[in-house]
Design a protein around this nucleic acid. Sequence first.
DNA 1: GCCGTTTTCGGCCCGACTGTTTTCAGTCG
Length: 588
Amino acid sequence: MNKDQVAEVLGKIAVLLELKGENPFKTRAYVNAARLLETLNEPLEKVIAENRLPTLKGIGEALQQKITELMATGKLAYYEELKASTPPGLVAMLDIPGLGPKKVKMLHDELSISSVEQLERACQEGTVADLKGFGEKTQANILAGIARRRTYASRHLLYDVLPLAEGLLDQLRQHPEVVRCGSAGSLRRSREIVGDIDLLASSRHPREVIDDFTALPGLLSVIARGDTKASVLLEGGVQCDLRVVSDAEFASALMYFTGSKEHNIVMRQRAIERGLRLNEYGLFRSKEETRDPSLRVPCATEEEIFQALGLHYVPPEMREDLGEFEVAAAGPVPRLIEWTDLKGSLHNHSTWSDGRQTPADIARSMSELGLAYWGVTDHSKASFQANGLTVARLHEQIREVREINDALARDGHEFRLLTGTEVDVLKDGSLDFPDEILAELDVVIASVHQAFKATEAEMMERILGVVRNPYVHILGHLTGRLLLEREAYLVDQRAIIDACAENGTWIELNASPSRLDMDWRLWPYAKSKGVKCVINCDAHRFEHAGYLRLGAGMARKAGLTRDDVVNTWPLEKLKQALTQKRRRAGKL
DNA sequence: GCCGTTTTCGGCCCGACTGTTTTCAGTCG
């Protein structure tokens, strides 16, 4: 077992303990331990072998024993017993809004319900409403929850909901009673997948804002409406929550609703240590619950709240309790990359393979966007379904791109296309093009597009081979995942990062909305090893240039700065860096 | 289940909302 699998088991134990009605703090200990392992930047085997498990904060004797057993045997008797004593359908029932562990346990104990299907039937028959603590309304809500879950996904790609949020914010900004407004929640943190849209506004008349918000055209339905809060269902089944607070409360409310939950817990802890109390209404000089204005520590912005708690400002993307507190306590957080720092994308397609525009059209539109360069890196012949190029066609394409660049130069344009390929990594680990032609190209990306089902050992052998190839500059979409669609293939990402560090190979942050691969969680490790990032659109049409913004959001989550990302560099510096790898291997 | 210059026991972030109850448990973010 690797550490991610151990973390998964610990997480499942936490859910099962919840269902059993165990002490919630015990449950949290398992959740915390799972999280800790996920974020561990070294092999768990090594930590155990060097007897350093006890030094990890949050891992006590009981968890040490369980983690060690899992690593040694791949199994855990405690977990097996727990699992055997809990019907698997109960876990699925927790997904229904309004149902938590206590209610699920009650349904199981009193009505012998152990699946969503049985629950639906019992609600239709009306037996659930008779249970103590339940009622007609709860029963109806459960049915509605089951129906909604069946019709709509509860998780959405960030890229799909961003325009919805922008549209609503535009409406709010125009409202005469709105002072400030903005997005919060996972959207503001730039999480690759979001459950709903959280919006926040400040106003002296919240009720009016709420009333007008819930009357906006195009809403599928209004789920809930109170004086300061409303939930609505948007097109496509995306839920949007709006909260309206007074302007004095805006900064603390924005911080609170931006989260993450884990980040907020640490912030409140810091407040307590300073004899203060932090909640969505403000920062107060009190240990007791209060909203007394005379006790309020005046904070008009989030910056001031961080400052009051002994921290420098933490950009919202980094608020995941994944190391941001150490950084912000020690000094100012370095200026993170902005999407406007990016000067072009190195991995893109044209009509030569499966893209929609010709290289000439691409050059025109990308230069109009103000970019400095753009890689034309079509598929290689093994990607037959994508009209991959043969060696002969690639030679033709190189000529065409060079002619376009010559014309750009004659007309005094600074923009340039880069010749290149996204060459397939074949099943046996070789590349789909011979080294001779790769050597002619400005930029070479190697990606896996086939034989996804390989074992981890096979996959690692394939990928490590291309990482060492002196002609490969960039490793494309490292895990092949498609968010909400397809799992990553089996790879040890940290081992690949190590190999990239040794060989001077860059790793792509593929900014296509359903890829965002390599994952932002791995980039701090890559950065610590000196591995450079390339934020690529993998564009197949003009509009995909907009993915640069999405990619930059992920890089910000990882704490990357301009200099960590090579396509922020000007063309000459980039070209020098591209030739450096080949020079290093004695190939130039 | 973890943790400790107030603690080896008694804490563990905080508040709103909902629907069920007549003062609150459960759920949610």
